[in-house]
Amino acid sequence: MTTSILLVDDAASLAELFARAVEHELGHRVEVVVAVADVHEALERGPYEIAIVDLSFPQERCTGLDALAEIHRHSPDTKLALFTQGDDWVAETLRDAWELLPIATVISKTAPLDYQLAAIQSVVETGSAPPDPAVQPLLPAHRPEWRTPERFAKLIQHQGHAKVWSALIDDPDDATYKSVAARTGLKLNTVKNYRSQLLSELNLHGLSDPTLREMQDFARRCRAFLRPFVDDALQVR
């Protein structure tokens, strides 16, 4: 039976070759998308049984996490697979994806083709596959039950929090209390109080007493999960 697969990877030539290999060896249909911005359009042409998504998109202001979240929101039944080098550069994003989404497997881009194809076929047949051993050391032993996309709602308890998160996500420069206060119109001490209010909840996301700059990194990385709650809070005025 032919399975429909969406492959999201910015390395166009490699993605095309890999797609052809999957089609030729496994007999599945693969659609290649080379930009996160094009994922929405591709989803309209769906549905896809499996989405294989790269994590790093240096040419775009987003990561594979944005694509994965969008795919999962659009079609929750689509099996999600990560396709990554699994290096230090994407380690945090990889961990967030693994903990926040029902990732069926992690395929290493550098694994032998046989391994990659076997992992895809295992997902097709059983719904999951063990992560590639070379990437396994970057994944936590257990997915924390409390870390879910819905839990991000607790990071936006009121409009003030939403303003702070929005400023952190949108500020192109490194965030400071002054810059956040200027963007939100909040008092400096109010920004500090809001940060303090969120510390215990941020701890559940692996951030222990983060600085504003670290909160900004987290907000940018996880914007796909934060943004809907931020927008909801800001619209209810």
């Binding site: 699994g86 230090d88 032998p112 070379a134 396994q136 050391p137």
Partner: peptide, 24 residues
């Protein structure tokens, strides 16, 4: 984890399968 990766990959290409790996 970064130190392990190339050695694990080499063993994989030589046909070794890993039954257990350390986690993060």
């Amino acid at each position: 984890a970064d130190i392990l990766q190339p050695h694990v990959r080499r063993a994989q290409t030589l046909g070794v399968s890993f039954t257990a790996m350390p986690s993060l």
